[in-house]
């Protein structure tokens, strides 16, 4: 194959037709409150890990729901499971357990 000095850039669109929804489905089944998140960001604002790292819990949840799980393992490793987020959530999402379930799913599906 010929080298032109560049390659065809990969598309970074989220493609919902081919997205890997296994983690999202697993979490929704085992921690149904994951469904009622309204992405308000209260969790992120109070997140201990978020203060010291670039972890964004609100965004992480959204990405999992879209099947964007390539970086989930690295991101979730920043969480200390302190559970402050669960206390802060205005919708009563058990955010701490969502993280636990995401972690379980990542192990289960070897991701």
């Amino acid at each position: 194959m010929k080298d032109f000095g560049f390659t065809i850039n990969k598309d970074r669109q989220i493609d919902m037709d081919t997205a890997d929804m296994r983690v999202a489905e697993y979490v929704k089944t085992h921690e149904p409150s994951f469904n009622i998140c309204i992405a308000c960001g209260t969790c992120t604002a109070t997140c201990s890990a978020g203060i010291f790292t670039d972890m964004n819990l609100r965004k992480l949840f959204t990405l999992v729901k879209r099947g964007e799980i390539a970086n989930t393992r690295t991101e979730i490793a920043k969480c200390m499971l302190c559970g402050k987020c669960s206390l802060a959530c205005p919708r009563g999402v058990n955010t701490r357990n969502v993280i636990v379930k995401i972690n379980q799913a990542l192990i289960k599906f070897s991701l």
Binding site: G5, F6, T7, I8, N9, K10, D11
Partner: peptide, 14 residues
């Protein structure tokens, strides 16, 4: 600019 051509070709490719 050659360094950017990956974007250019990706559009046509799509």
């Amino acid at each position: 600019v050659q360094a950017n051509r990956g974007y250019s070709v990706a559009c046509s490719h799509k």
